[in-house]
Simulated scan of single mutants.
Amino acid sequence: MVIPGNNRRAHHYEALARELSGTYGVHVIERRGRGLSGPQGPAYSVETEVDDALAVMDHTGARLVFGHSYGGLVALHLGLRRRVSALMAYEPGVSIDGSFPARWLPSFNRLLAEGRHAAAMATFLKATRLAPIGDAPAPVFHALAFLLLRGAEGRDARAMMATTPAEIGEIIRLDSDGTRYANVDSPALLLGGDRSPGYLTGVLARLAHVMPDARHEIVAGLDHNAPDLNAPGVIAEQIRTFVESRVPGEQSH
């Protein structure tokens, strides 16, 4: 079961699913606020997402879980409620001792409420450092935001922006010293890329130290969008290798 990240839909993981489908049955969740799935709702929380993911697991019989970014945070909290055969996350949206930067969120919310989607997207891209353009001048981020919102997936991108405040809000609400994740006892693989921002990769070693059966790896040449855009084959191989080493004989079902 694949749990998508913030501003991502199920179809963004089609290449990853194809790479894995020769070995496993793959189910990619269309998370709340996306496509035909229902809205986040007023009582939204990470636990709401975990409820949805557990329902998919119960329906499909899935025993392996992979989460990307915010989906990785959901995967970790799923692991707090259920032991799975293998739990894998790529740069999960975890904040430890204030590590996740979120001072930009009030400005983002205000711009979004004013209908200034391009300005809000530019704020998000510049503050999170997820765009592969480094510390470019603000007009460059505005131009990139304009292209993203006017491109082939612009309509989806605009719709998903409405889910960002609640999701980033959950990351901040759940900020801690990380010790809660000591209760995740599933065999776990925590992945990151060496081209990703440090606030995403820096928590991996701390999580792996706290979690009783976890290891972490920083993969050379990868950035935050490796699972969905830039290197799904590499991520699929990491998943297969880990599962084969920890859950021998696990195949499609």
Rank of each mutant, 00 (worst) to 15 (best):
A143H: 09
A136P: 11
L147S: 15
Y70E: 08
R81I: 13
L191W: 02
G202E: 15
G193Q: 01
R82H: 14
A119K: 08
G198K: 09
R158Q: 05
G93D: 11
L148D: 09
F66Y: 04
A118T: 12
I168D: 05
I29P: 03
D97W: 09
L222S: 02
R150D: 13
R195K: 09
A86G: 07
L16R: 00
S99A: 07
H224D: 01
V84M: 15
R240T: 10
P132W: 06
L54G: 06
D228S: 15
D177N: 08
L147Q: 15
D156V: 14
L204V: 06
A166M: 03
R103Q: 15
V184D: 00
A166H: 07
V247W: 07
S176P: 04
H209N: 14
L111S: 05
I3G: 00
R32L: 15
G61T: 12
P197A: 08
P106T: 01
G72N: 01
D97F: 14
H224C: 01
A182I: 08
V56Y: 06
P187G: 03
R32N: 03
H142V: 08
H11R: 14
V65C: 01
E49I: 10
W104E: 03
H216T: 08
A113M: 12
P197G: 09
N109C: 13
